[in-house]
Computed example of a mutant assay.
Amino acid sequence: MAAIRLFISTGEVSGDLQGSLLIAALFRQAKQLGLELEILALGGDRMAAAGAKLLANTIGISSIGIWEALPYVWPTWRLQQKIARQIRETSLDAAILIDYIGPNIGWGGRLPKSHPNIPIFYYIAPQEWVWSFGEGKTTQLVNFSDRIFAIFPGEATYYRDRGAAVSFVGHPLIDQLQDRPDRAKARAQLGLQEQERAIALYPASRPQELKFLLPTVLAAAQQLNAELPNLRFFVPLSQEKFRTTIEEAARELNLPLQIVSGETTALVQAAADLAIAKSGTVNLELGLQGIPQVVVYRVGAVTAWIARHILRFSIPFMSPVNLVDMEAIVPELLQDEANPDRIAAEAKAILLDPDRQAAIQAGYQRMRQSLGEPGVCDRAAQEILTAALQQKQVLSRER
């Protein structure tokens, strides 16, 4: 039998991470089944390293916000059109869409026309269950998805109630917990002394966040450095191209920090006493490792005004940590509240209050129990490969 060929589409740093974990599981499961597997993908370097053939790198063409997204609309559309022509001429046995709502809604419309009857899976569905502006995109997604693999309990309920076939597989970051570095060893490798406290800063995974979040996060760190002794600051890079911008911003503030990348980022997460982090998947990574954090986010003034006054945008929480059980486990500072004084005050309060730290740890434990059991990616991979193999066998009989 010819190789099973899958198409995976995602974007952004978090999508690349989740895609890479799923791709590794797909290859593991294919090997157990004695199947040859080929994966064509839109994603990033992590997915390529996991074994996918990258059709295009989509990590640098993503944004959050209305005004902020405009520069990326045309490049994204052109890329989608180019890859669509390539995909039309390629046989596929299944497609997997990961988050990345705008482009992937487009793929959900195209793929059934060019590849009738192939199963389409949505893995990590867009968070319409949290901040939908209406049912339109949800209806589209449910209509073209043969199955949605949900990673949050609320996500599973939302899409199931709207008629989707849903499997709650749990959150894929659960699988990574088994490989996390030991805290004491991580601190030793980073050269941290016993009295030193490590503060991890996560200001950006998208280009526009360098503008709206980086200065604020570094200014808050500068305040902490002036008010508390024995702090060491680390910035784990989400994209290497951000290094120079972060170095220059820290130099202007005379803020001593260490920028790390690659495997050292895992050491920082294991060793950190506190994190100041943008809202995103990194919040869950930190939460699952028990690192107290202050979550921050800002968008441009135009986007914020439109969201508040025209779209009447309102959400219960922004951080995935708080969204799991709709519980305020960690503080969130959004828009005007995300200023250096407030961020530094929240961080200082956590660092100096053992009861606050204990409450966060108890919340993390409840969150962890809601996110399922290990083997998340392998469960999804098994179902994907089973459906893809059935589709291939059907086509073979028809021929």
Results as ranks from 00 to 15, higher is better:
Q80Y: 14
Q80V: 12
Q81I: 06
Q81A: 13
Q81V: 08
Q81R: 15
K82R: 15
K82P: 03
K82C: 08
K82I: 06
K82N: 14
I83D: 09
I83R: 10
I83Q: 09
A84L: 15
R85N: 13
Q86M: 12
I87R: 11
I87D: 10
R88A: 15
R88S: 15
E89D: 13
T90K: 13
T90A: 10
S91W: 10
L92N: 00
L92M: 04
L92R: 04
D93A: 04
D93S: 00
D93W: 00
A94D: 03
A94N: 04
A94F: 01
A94Y: 01
A95G: 00
A95I: 03
A95C: 06
A95R: 00
A95D: 00
I96E: 03
I96R: 01
I96N: 00
I96P: 01
I96F: 03
L97M: 06
I98W: 06
D99T: 03
Y100D: 02
Y100N: 02
Y100V: 01
Y100L: 05
I101V: 06
G102C: 02
G102N: 07
G102L: 07
G102R: 04
P103D: 06
P103I: 05
P103W: 07
N104Y: 12
N104G: 08
N104P: 07
I105C: 05
I105Y: 05
G106N: 10
G106W: 13
G106E: 09
W107H: 04
W107E: 04
G108F: 13
G109T: 05
G109K: 14
G109P: 01
R110K: 13
R110P: 00
L111G: 02
L111S: 05
L111W: 06
L111N: 04
P112Q: 07
P112C: 08
P112H: 08
P112I: 08
